[in-house]
Amino acid sequence: MKKGIILFIVSLISVSFFMVSCSKDKTAVKKIVVATDATWPPMEYVDENKKIVGFDIDYLTAAAKEAGFEVEFQNTAWDGIFAGLAANKYDAVCSSVTITDERKKTMDFSIPYVSIGQTIVVKKELNGLEELSQFKGKKVGAQIGTTGAIEISKYKEITLKTYDEIGLAIEDLAKGRIDAVVCDNPIAANYALLNPKYKEVLKIVGKPFTTEEYGVAVAKGNKEVLDLINAGISKVKEKGIDKELEKKWLR
């Protein structure tokens, strides 16, 4: 009986603490928790100091400063990132998310903040193949659930290999286990042109063959967060901060 009473009191105290801390949050600056899959350099990745950095991170941080909210980034695996959004584990996803009609059905998007295209990366020795349609009968890799993977799966004759992280796909390409990798052009450029390990081995072929726009995704109907983010993004564009960031990260 005594134990029961103590337990009751303890739970009462903890519940009241919880409520107090909740109400405190509301008076302070709105904090938005943003999920990102930090395996996608230079858009978002983990640097040597284990900090999440990249174009998207800088962009949203700038937007937050302009619109007066706080952001906290949370590293999340890509293939469950939208499930977590739907389950309200975080408020938004800013992780190089291409705005597609399919995705619009299950989530809401901010105004687009940068546009990119899908590009093909191959080994240096491979010549003559420049379009995805020429890769019939070959193995082409992409990160699972990305627009790159969706583009490849449109060609039935191509064997699509999906990876948890784009870095693993690039590594397999360098090792010769697959013939090509399809990903967003900033990422392709980062691996094939800048990365000291891969720039001697890999190259980009053809031009970006899709036009896509990145947006910040929020749960369907979460207007409060969406408005804040949209306000931030438009201010960043107005002030020209986005051009600086593009120069810094995308070149």
């Binding site: 469950g80 939208f82 499930a83 739907a86 299950t106 699972i144 969706i150 999906t162 796909a169």
Partner: peptide, 22 residues
């Protein structure tokens, strides 16, 4: 499935990650 071997789980993950029917 983490080695990009398209087994049952990888196929399921591929489907879920594009259709969102987790």
């Amino acid at each position: 499935s983490i080695l990009a071997v398209s087994d049952l789980l990888r196929r399921g993950r591929e489907y879920a990650s594009t259709s969102f029917y987790y």
